[in-house]
Nucleic acid binder design. Sequence first.
RNA 1: CGGGACGUAGCGCAGUCUGGUAGCGCACUUGACUGGGGGUCAAGAGGUCGCAGGUUCAAAUCCUGUCGUCCCGACCA
Length: 598
Amino acid sequence: MRWSKTFIPTMKETPADAEIPSHQLMLRAGLIRQVMSGSYTYLPLGWRAIRKAEAIVREEMERAGAVELFMPALQPIDLFERTGRREAFGDVLINFMVPRGDRQVHMALGPTHEEVITDLVAHHISSYRQMPITMFQIQTKFRNEERPRFGVLRTSEFIMKDAYSFDASLEQLDDSYQKMYGAYCRIFARTGLEYLPVEAESGAIGGDASHEFMIPAENGEDRIVRCPKCNYAANLERADTGRRCPLTDPRVGEGADNDSTHDSAATVEWDELEQIDTPNATSIEQVCKMLKCKPEEMIKTLIYLADGKPVAVLIRGDREANEGKIRRTLEADALELADEKTIFDVTGAPVGFAGPVGIDCRILADHDIPLLVNPISGANAADAHNTGVNIGRDYQVEATYDLRNAVAEDPCPNCAGTLEMVHGIEAGHVFKLGTKYSESLNAYFVDEKEKRHPVIMGCYGIGINRIVAAACETSHDENGLIWPLAIAPYEVLVVPLKIDDEEVMQIATRFYEELQAAGVDVLFDDRKARPGVKFKDGDLVGIPLRVVIGGRGLKEGNVEIKWRTAEGPDKIPVEEGVATLLRMLEERRAADAENVPN
RNA sequence: CGGGACGUAGCGCAGUCUGGUAGCGCACUUGACUGGGGGUCAAGAGGUCGCAGGUUCAAAUCCUGUCGUCCCGACCA
């Protein structure tokens, strides 16, 4: 492609609305333009990158045995009502009425396609002999994001690959899942991105049924913990910690309290339990300010309703409660924060003054709690807190549990290592769905004994936009983007420095044409512009390999070849130029392929 | 949905407090010079100051409302 014939609106300055590197650079390099909050136009360069990523995904899906189909964005609301997801999605589901003759048709823009495909399967798969089968689609999906942000990373309209597996047994499902998991590893490896498969919260299905594929990035919305020693990695919602109950563990304090602010409980004097006035201080922050203490010296007492029954959950003041862990510990189906009335009934105080001492409900304490010495908690009385609240004396618990989000420095649940926390961009998710959709949409099959069962499903998504955005987010320098070869919009940039010099132009055109003929994606900067402008733009858009043809080099019979990431160019005789470029590309591709698992 | 910030030329911004002819840099057009890391000079074009209403002799500027965008939080198969 000739630069002068395509549309690459680069920008010297950073638009004020863009905050994170990927957003700024995608705008500056002319990849995207915003249309409104949460929706973007992909310009020619950005779209090429999307299509490259898409092609890799498609190839790997097919390699894993999945077959492609295409489903409509417009879907009848009825399908979502049957699966209960109209309510579950709430406002996220974009839906509207459309007049058709004298009636109104209620439809939704597909936020994903489980309903449509399950309905399809319900009609056409009726025997175990028709399975296993995995089908996939690469399409635009719509979700009314409450708050679109980070440029193209969180938008209301996005391109997604979704695959759905249909199996007749759990063993088949495991196999389908593993094939997809393997395909995902190959996909992310091929895109040239660093990636991390992590255990993810799988909701009501439980077990090891869900993995997210994360691209580690400082600005990622998700938090992940991982252990550098073993391969343990998990989404923060899911991550276990290797902490033990200090009440039952003979090694009290050991390994469980990495935060050397406190000594082991056994060696420290307990203060008297005392009640002090804290008017209007209902939050940890306010109490700390008033009493000049730190959040880690406090007990946060959260009152939950677990299947309708109140429970007090004790968490160290500076930590975050993990509702999934609490729910599983209680073996409850539903867990929600209690309402004001329940809190008053249980504590005898308004919201904000709950504490363990004298509370009238079950108490569930996190492992951190017994390690606190003389902590502060609510006093179960309006405008008052207790100091010197010590477990075993002032209140009792039979055991402690892992109830909070993991945090850097927590012990690894798998080995003797220590967890570290990284941020990541969720680019893919593999998920064992089970029979939720097949049951509600009546997708049943008969087995060899003529018994009817719901089809067992799995679903497997990849955000195509996010692959591209994550590449931009994680691969750039002060001059601009640095594309991995595999998803770069163009592989080679041919730069004639002076387009009205006949010799320069003739050689450059020859490079362009010969590279194209060899199947290389090449961008030809034929613009009448000063060399500085071409160099700056070239670096900004980040094409991996650049060849410069200019009067200075030609005088010595050379062209200059440089990887985007290289310090300076290599001078190569004109006649060997094209062959050298082809060889360099080949070597790079081979090296990249080394990293792709089988 | 709660909190905060901002809407002035394609982009980045000044002007708003203290009302009085709408500005600067980059980009754009034309010409000359220049020609290996975003050039120089000259001449130009481009703006309902987000929108609506109000106050005033007079509103980008003050008041009210509204729309939009961004950030933090809540939410997120």
